[in-house]
């Protein structure tokens, strides 16, 4: 097949394409400038951070802030790698299980018929609307009843069943044509195989997106309320402790903000490339 992108698409005018690009450039600048500013801040020496009037771009870039941050990290009570390990560990385990568990539930909610399914799904959506500020206390009561306070369980297990995941996956699973699933069943595949081999590949853009949401949430998870042993604290908690020590840490604080952002950003870029890549190969078709 001749590459479609070379051919001029029907229903598109040059004028429309141009407006489209101009609008996007304008808003992209609005979105990006504050971030550019934040990145610059991380490399500003202390006197430039408190300079008036503030300059947008850094003049004498320095790695002092980063060095300062590492010095503070080394002075912490437990080795800093421990906080790092905790966050990486709960992020990986939580994200993998969340995607599998949420997708399995979403699959039957979208493609099976059984009593109670609509009620269940409506409850899942409504759970998104109740303020987490209020449920924090009942949540703590439940955790302590289970004996999970101050364990990894308290951080990982709730993340596995975040309602957002089921909602997102179900919306995409609905678009899968039943005929594709039926033909796999006729070929003798059991439901687990149909789910893993047929349904999941078809909704790859969806779970790549869910991967971002889950990764982002767990990476920034401050488990402070459920976990109090120093060995179990997460990276955001430890970093907050550093920032809380005072004004003189302003440089380190801006380095922290940047540092916390880099890892999810890299994961995001990789997964987005995959989302966009899948288009030509696996648009859902009968």
């Amino acid at each position: 097949m001749v590459s479609i992108s070379k051919r001029r698409t029907p229903n598109r005018s040059r004028f429309g394409d141009l407006t489209n690009i101009l609008v996007l450039i304008g808003f992209a600048a609005f979105m990006a400038l504050p971030l550019v500013f934040a990145v610059n801040n991380a490399f500003k020496p202390l006197e430039e951070l408190f300079q008036f009037p503030p300059r947008f771009l850094v003049r004498n870039p320095t790695l002092d802030n980063v060095r300062d941050l590492f010095a503070l990290m080394n002075a912490s009570w437990v080795p800093f790698t421990r906080y790092m390990f905790n966050t990486v560990f709960i992020t990986l385990i939580g994200t993998v299980f969340h995607i599998i568990v949420a997708s399995m539930a979403a699959y039957v909610l979208a493609k099976h018929q059984f009593p109670g399914k609509n009620l269940f799904f409506n409850i899942v959506i409504m759970a998104l609307m109740f303020s987490p500020h209020v449920t924090a206390i009942p949540n703590y009561l439940i955790m302590s009843r289970l004996g999970w306070v101050d364990t990894y369980n308290a951080l990982v297990v709730p993340a596995i069943a975040a309602p957002l995941g089921v909602f997102l996956m179900k919306q995409f699973m609905e678009q899968i044509p039943v005929s594709l699933l039926e033909s796999a069943r006729i070929d003798g595949a059991n439901e687990f195989i149909v789910f893993f081999r047929v349904a999941m590949p078809l909704v790859k853009p969806a779970w790549l997106t869910l991967l971002i949401f889950s990764f982002q949430g767990l990476w920034n998870l401050d488990g402070g309320t459920f976990v109090y042993s120093e060995e179990l604290k997460t990276l955001p908690t430890a970093l907050q402790q550093i920032v809380a020590t005072g004004f003189s840490r302003a440089g380190a604080a801006s380095a922290i903000a940047l540092f916390m952002m880099i890892v999810p950003l890299v994961v995001f870029i990789i997964s987005q490339n995959n989302v966009i890549e899948t288009m030509s190969t696996s648009g859902i078709k009968e």
Binding site: A105, Y107, A127, T135, A161, P163, V166, F195
Partner: peptide, 20 residues
């Protein structure tokens, strides 16, 4: 298929809402 999600969801999302 629904059970793993359902059980955790009930314990950590639905139950806290009901208690609230």
């Amino acid at each position: 298929f629904l059970a793993p999600f359902g059980i955790i969801f009930f314990t950590f999302y639905l139950l806290p809402v009901i208690i609230s």
